[in-house]
C-alpha cells in the first residue's frame, strides 16, 4: 500500500484517494477550434515519466495536484490546486 501526502491531511494510505486524471488545459470556450476541443475531450497524453495529476482525498473530498512518475510510480510531490490555478478562495484550499 503506497502512501500519498495529502496537502490537507498529511500522509495517508493511497486507498483513501481517488485518481482524477491528468491535469489538462481546457481550450477557450469561444475561440477554441473543433480540433483543440477534440484533443482535449478525447485524447490522453499517456506520458512515460513525470506527469501532473488530479487526486482527491475521499474522506474530505479534497482535490489537489500530484506530480507522479508513471514509469517508477514514485510520487514526486503534491500541492494544493491553488498553486496551479490561483488563489481565489475555495473551500479547503488555502493550505
Amino acid at each position: 500500500m503506497k502512501l500519498m501526502h495529502c496537502p490537507l491531511n498529511g500522509p495517508r494510505n493511497i486507498s483513501e484517494f481517488q485518481y482524477g486524471g491528468v491535469v489538462k488545459t481546457m481550450p477557450d470556450p469561444v475561440a477554441g477550434s473543433d480540433d483543440a476541443w477534440r484533443d482535449y475531450i478525447v485524447y490522453e497524453p499517456n506520458v512515460a515519466g513525470p506527469v501532473l495529476e488530479w487526486w482527491c482525498h475521499l474522506p474530505t473530498s479534497y482535490w489537489f495536484i500530484a506530480e507522479r512518475d508513471t514509469v517508477s510510480d514514485r510520487i514526486i510531490r503534491t500541492m494544493p490546486a491553488a498553486e496551479m490555478f490561483g488563489a481565489t478562495p475555495a473551500a479547503g484550499d488555502e493550505t
Binding site: G20, W54, C56, S61, Y62, W63, F64, A81, A82, F85, G86, A87, T88, P89, A90, A91, D93
Partner: peptide, 12 residues
C-alpha cells in the same frame, strides 16, 4: 469540487 478547484469561482 474538482471543477471549482480549477475554476476558482466564489462558491461553496
Amino acid at each position: 469540487l474538482r471543477l471549482n478547484a480549477e475554476w476558482r469561482m466564489r462558491v461553496d
